[in-house]
Simulated assay, not measured.
Amino acid sequence: MANNLLQSPAHASAVPFSRPPTPGVHPLQVGFCGLGAMGYFMARNLANSFKSQLPPLIVYNRTVSKSQKLLAELGASAVKVADTLDQLVTECDVIFTNLANDAVVMNIYNEFAKALAHSPPTKVKIFVETSTIYPTLASDLDKLLLSFPHTHFVTSPIFGPPKGADSATLVIAMSGDYRSKKEIAFLLVPAVGRKVIDLGGNVEKAPTLKLIGNGMIMGMNELLAETLTLGEKSGIGQQTVYNLIKEIMPAPGLVAYGNKMVNDLFDGTVGFAIDGGIKDANHIRRLSAELNCPMPAVDNAHRSLISTRAMHQAQVVAGTQQWDIIDWSASIASSRVAAGLDPFDSKKGTGVIRED
């Protein structure tokens, strides 16, 4: 099944697996389900990476216009649009999924199971779930798929924003069947991401690491929001505090989210929508409670996200919203309001006057 032409020696150190065997007689058919903020770029980069070596990437999305957009962008030599999930499952050897939440993931995989029951595979078929899901759901999906012959399941959540998906600089966690992971890793790097982290055979491990990573990011965002707000309220100015952060703590995440907060760049259609952040916060809090491992930073971040969403929804009802969907970096609104500032417009409020 493998297609070892897709991995250059320069990227070998980014993949913790040996190169797969030589490809078989039939070229590998890859499919992708879910063309959202992340999935669109991932599918596009996959299609571009092997359009001269493998058949066109088969894509499926509930909103067909997104599939048609990708087809128009890349052409029929790189992309083929599936009319149904059955077609995606039947025609593909590898199916990637990138979906909004656990309920959608479960629904899609139940549809996959129906297709597999109707047309049992006669050769290896690998399903790769790249969304952020609760770890026990991964086990449920694994059990569901392994009841069908020749079928394997890999969890492969990705770290990075849509901009990282666009530039193919994502970090990819991976757990599940070893041979399947080897196949998938050499498809994804460097086409979609820059590095694979192998978490072993237990499919729950990669989703667990993903939640840990997202918890760290949302805790960082909470502290960042509080710090920038204190800078503004104290008369130092949030821009000055942000400049200091870039000098002494220039981590990519701090710099990127700090820029969004300072400049009120809260458009969730080009970032990570706040509903997704709240969903992840709920998952992390559930995990920490089940493991008796408190994460108060995440608790605080969750409160800020909920408060911010409530403020934004009030604006939507009043018809005064600037963005129909807000990015989770807008959680700074909670800190601003608590400090007596405008939630979404940093130009309103204290105003910094320098004392010479």
Rank of each mutant, 00 (worst) to 15 (best):
P149G: 00
L244E: 06
K163W: 04
D324V: 05
V105K: 01
D275V: 05
S234L: 14
A12D: 09
V59F: 04
N45H: 06
S329E: 02
D299Q: 12
T22L: 15
Q87E: 15
K348D: 07
K181I: 03
V30Q: 00
L88S: 00
L265P: 00
I274W: 08
D264C: 14
V262A: 06
I158K: 09
A78P: 07
A47T: 03
V59D: 02
T130N: 09
K195Y: 09
I245E: 06
T90K: 13
A225L: 09
V262Y: 04
I284F: 10
S65R: 11
C33L: 15
E73Y: 04
D166I: 04
I325V: 14
C293N: 14
A72F: 07
P149N: 01
A185G: 13
N48E: 15
D142I: 00
A113N: 00
L211G: 01
T227W: 10
S180D: 05
L146D: 07
L116T: 00
A138H: 05
V79E: 02
I158N: 06
A251W: 14
P20F: 05
R285F: 07
L341T: 02
L71Q: 05
L230Q: 10
F148G: 00
L35E: 02
D342I: 00
S139C: 10
N263M: 04
F41P: 03
P20L: 06
N4K: 12
G31A: 13
L28I: 00
M295S: 15
K205E: 13
L291Y: 12
A318Q: 15
V59C: 12
A12S: 10
T90S: 11
P252V: 01
V25T: 12
R19L: 15
A47N: 03
P161M: 09
